Simulated assay, not measured.
Amino acid sequence: MDTEALPDITTRDDLERALRRFYRAAFADPLIGPFFTEVARLDLEAHLPRITDFWESALLRTAAYRGNALAPHAALHAVAPLTAAHFGRWVQLWRATLDGRHAGPVTERAKDRSQRIAAAMLRRLDAGDTGGGTGGFVPLSAVRLASGH
Rank of each mutant, 00 (worst) to 15 (best):
L6T: 02
L6V: 03
D8S: 04
D8L: 01
I9N: 05
I9P: 00
I9G: 05
T10I: 02
T11A: 07
T11D: 11
R12V: 12
R12I: 11
R12L: 08
D13I: 11
D13G: 13
D14A: 12
D14R: 07
D14C: 14
E16S: 15
E16H: 11
E16R: 15
R17W: 12
R17K: 15
R17E: 14
A18W: 11
L19Y: 13
R20E: 15
R20Y: 14
R20W: 07
R20T: 15
R21H: 14
F22Q: 10
F22E: 10
Y23L: 09
Y23R: 14
R24F: 12
A25S: 13
A25F: 04
A26G: 15
A26R: 14
F27N: 08
F27H: 09
A28Y: 06
A28L: 12
P30N: 07
P30A: 06
P30I: 10
P30Y: 09
L31R: 08
I32H: 01
I32M: 03
I32C: 03
G33N: 09
P34D: 06
P34G: 04
F35N: 03
F35P: 01
F36P: 07
F36L: 08
T37P: 03
T37L: 00
T37Y: 01
E38C: 03
V39C: 03
A40M: 12
R41T: 14
R41C: 14
L44E: 14
L44T: 13
L44I: 12
E45Q: 15
E45R: 10
A46C: 07
A46T: 15
A46E: 14
H47E: 13
H47C: 10
P49V: 10
P49F: 12
R50W: 12
T52H: 07
D53H: 13
D53W: 06
D53E: 09
F54Y: 10
E56C: 09
E56W: 06
E56H: 11
E56I: 05
E56P: 08
S57G: 04
A58N: 04
L60T: 02
L60Q: 00
L60R: 01
R61G: 02
R61P: 00
T62L: 01
T62V: 03
T62A: 02
T62C: 00
A64W: 04
Y65L: 07
R66D: 04
G67Y: 08
N68L: 04
N68P: 01
N68A: 06
N68I: 02
A69G: 06
L70I: 04
L70T: 07
L70C: 06
A71W: 08
A71N: 07
P72S: 11
A74R: 06
A75V: 09
L76V: 05
L76I: 05
H77Y: 01
A78Q: 05
A78W: 03
V79H: 03
V79W: 02
A80E: 05
A80F: 01
A80Y: 01
P81S: 00
P81M: 00
L82Y: 01
T83A: 01
A84N: 02
